[in-house]
Amino acid sequence: MKRELRVLLVTWFGMLAGAAAAQDVRITEDMATAPFSVAGRDYVIARNQEISNRLTGELARTSRPCPDFCIQPMRAAPGVRTMGELEVIAYLQDEVSAGNGLLIDARPPGAFAAAAVPGSVSVPLDVIRAGNPYRGQIFEAIGGRQDGIGFDFSSALQLVIYGDGPWSSEAAEMIRVLVDAGYPAAKLGYYRGGMQGWQSLGLTVADTVSGG
């Protein structure tokens, strides 16, 4: 009873404060929102200002069966940096908007269409696997150059890759596939938190394929 009362009180105060100040739930103390633009499109990342907001449904689950949904290590591959939300936001503002890199959603296309990090692009793990006879075209699109049997990625884009969350392997798996194909580890980043980490902080989500 006492606990419920406290939650109610916090919610009440939160709503009051929300009415008073426009941005009460900031990204960091110094940053209320993170605007950036990619290829002429403007994006703003902010946090959900509704203090009572809670994750529900699929995102609230704690116990997916392992395998297949197993806890991922902190490092996806040697030399690949692991990033948190602030690093991902800085990467979007600095590298993606400058055309130096891509933020890649490794999940299946349907999941990307439902909810994704703004400014990210859908590259499902399956199309990067060696089994896809057309993956060479994707490698070329991200700046790889055909070099005999393999690809030369020395002038390719930087890639930061995310998946569903720390309990899901597609992002880490994609990093390993790319490293095997010759992608320099220094050009790769791993956002381990993934969509669950992103949404658990109430960060802005793009909900269409076009990334709106």
Partner: peptide, 12 residues
């Protein structure tokens, strides 16, 4: 692959 390529090209 076609979908992915058009997505990448749109961003690039």
């Amino acid at each position: 692959t076609v979908g992915v390529l058009s997505g990448i090209r749109a961003v690039i």
